[in-house]
Simulated scan of single mutants.
Amino acid sequence: MMKTEVFLQLLLLFAFGIGATLSVAEFQSSTPEPHAAESFNVSYIQMKNVGSCPYTVIISTSCSSPVYTRDQISISFGDAYGNQIYAPRLDDPSSKAFERCSSDTFQINGPCAYQICYVYLYRTGPDGWKPRSVQIYGHNTRAVTFNYNTFIPSDTWYGFNLCNAASSSSQLSCRKWFLCVVLGFVFSFWM
């Protein structure tokens, strides 16, 4: 009887350790960082881009960005099903877009998308620019916010692709569910 209790306690400790590890992994994956897009083809987007749904995009510029920028700023965003929206030039020096500590709102038309799960910004020019966040609102999608808080490298599509994150988090939830079933099974024998 004593060996069984020790075994169950060790099993419970092991299961707790696995659960804690999965929880830390889930927390770390929920705060993604922007990155350079490795294989991003704008020409594909331009061929597919037919205006049929409106999107509101709010881009907030960081307070640690330059006072203003003359850089050319482009955006592309979309869903996991290949619906991609592209705006080749958001900047307009006469409108004072992308000034430090400001937010700019853009109306962009593009293909109708499901839930927006990626966004990339492109900057070219000498000044530099640091966006704080990008919020995207669409007719058939939930509003989504991507937090940048970093300077955008020149001549590089830079941003987030969270399209596979939903399937990863569901796999993580399945692992947690399986762990709970195992623990319930063990506790049923223990009681």
Score class of each variant (00 low, 15 high):
M47Q: 14
M47N: 12
M47W: 09
K48P: 00
K48W: 00
N49L: 03
N49I: 00
N49C: 04
V50Y: 12
V50F: 13
V50L: 12
G51M: 07
G51D: 14
G51L: 07
G51Y: 07
S52E: 15
S52W: 02
S52T: 15
C53M: 12
C53E: 15
C53P: 08
P54I: 09
P54E: 12
P54K: 14
P54H: 06
P54Q: 10
P54D: 11
P54S: 13
Y55K: 05
Y55L: 08
Y55C: 09
T56G: 05
V57Q: 01
I58L: 08
I58H: 04
I58W: 00
I58F: 00
I59V: 14
S60N: 10
T61Y: 02
S62W: 12
S62H: 13
C63I: 07
S64W: 11
S64E: 15
S65F: 03
S65N: 08
S65T: 12
V67M: 11
V67R: 14
V67H: 07
V67Q: 13
V67S: 12
Y68D: 06
T69N: 06
T69Q: 04
T69M: 03
T69A: 01
R70N: 14
R70E: 13
R70A: 09
D71Q: 06
Q72G: 05
Q72D: 13
Q72W: 04
I73F: 03
I73Q: 08
I73N: 01
S74D: 01
I75C: 05
I75Q: 07
S76Y: 01
S76K: 04
F77T: 08
F77N: 04
F77V: 06
F77G: 05
G78S: 05
G78W: 01
G78I: 06
D79W: 03
D79H: 06
A80L: 09
A80H: 10
A80R: 14
A80I: 08
A80P: 01
Y81H: 14
Y81D: 13
Y81R: 13
Y81A: 11
N83A: 11
N83E: 08
N83K: 13
N83L: 05
Q84T: 10
Q84A: 12
Q84D: 13
Q84N: 10
I85T: 14
Y86W: 15
Y86M: 02
Y86C: 00
R89C: 06
L90R: 07
L90I: 09
L90W: 06
L90A: 02
L90N: 02
D91Y: 06
D91M: 06
D92E: 10
P93I: 02
P93H: 04
P93M: 03
P93V: 09
P93C: 00
S94C: 01
S95F: 02
K96N: 14
A97N: 15
A97K: 15
A97I: 08
F98Q: 04
